[in-house]
C-alpha cells in the first residue's frame, strides 16, 4: 500500500491522529504533528538518545521507529513529567545537581532515567551509567547526571517509605 496512512497515537494522555507517509519517523510525528518540541534530534544513527521517549512504558529512540508502527500505542515524552509546572522528583534532582547545561540532551536523559528507575528503584552507579549509555551529553561530563539519578532514587524510596 502506498500513500498516506491514518495513525492514532496517544501522547501524554492526549490522542493525536493524522494521515502520514509510512516513512515519517515517530520523532517527526511527535515534534511536527503533535507539536511537542521537547523531544530532540541529535544524530542520524540511533546513537545520541536525544529523541528518547517511552513507548508503552519502555524507553525507545523515536528517531528509529516509523510513526505508522506506533499506531495505537501510548507514548510519554518529557512534557509528561511535571504536573502543572511542578517538577517531579527526577526533574528536581536534575535541577538540584545541575545535571544539564545546554539542555538539549536533557529530555532524552530524563526519559532514559525514568525508564531505569521504573524497573530498578535503587540502581548502582554502574547501573545508572548503563541506563544512560544510549544518551550522549556533550556538556556535563555525565557526572552530575549520574548523581542526580542516584539522588532521585533515594528521594523516591524515601517517599515510598513515607506512604507505607
Amino acid at each position: 500500500m502506498s500513500g498516506k496512512q491514518l495513525v492514532n497515537i496517544e501522547i501524554n494522555g492526549k490522542k493525536y491522529s493524522a494521515e502520514v507517509e509510512p516513512r515519517l519517523l515517530l520523532v517527526d510525528f511527535i515534534r511536527d504533528t503533535a507539536k511537542l518540541k521537547g523531544t530532540h534530534i541529535g544524530c542520524d544513527t540511533t546513537s545520541c538518545g536525544a529523541c528518547t521517549i517511552l513507548l508503552d512504558g519502555k524507553s525507545i529512540k523515536s528517531c528509529t521507529m516509523f510513526a505508522v508502527e506506533a499506531d495505537g500505542s501510548k507514548i510519554s515524552t518529557v512534557e509528561s513529567l511535571a504536573t502543572d509546572g511542578k517538577l517531579n522528583i527526577l526533574q528536581n534532582a536534575f535541577w538540584e545537581h545541575h545535571a544539564l547545561q545546554c539542555g538539549y540532551c536533557t529530555p532524552g536523559m530524563l526519559m532514559s532515567s525514568t525508564f531505569l528507575l521504573s524497573r530498578n528503584p535503587d540502581p548502582t552507579e554502574e547501573e545508572i551509567r548503563e541506563g544512560i549509555a544510549g544518551n550522549i551529553c556533550r556538556c556535563t561530563g555525565y557526572i552530575n547526571i549520574i548523581k542526580a539519578v542516584k539522588d532521585a532514587a533515594l528521594v523516591m524510596s524515601a517517599e515510598t517509605g513515607k506512604e507505607k
Binding site: 540511533t46 538518545g49 528518547t52 513507548l55 519502555k58 524507553s59 525507545i60 529512540k61 528509529t64 521507529m65 532514559s112 525508564f115 531505569l116 548503563e130 541506563g131 549509555a133 544510549g134 544518551n135
Partner: peptide, 9 residues
C-alpha cells in the same frame, strides 16, 4: 547489545 533503548525495541 548497544544500549537500553535499542534493546527495548
Amino acid at each position: 547489545i548497544a544500549d537500553q533503548q535499542i534493546r527495548n525495541r
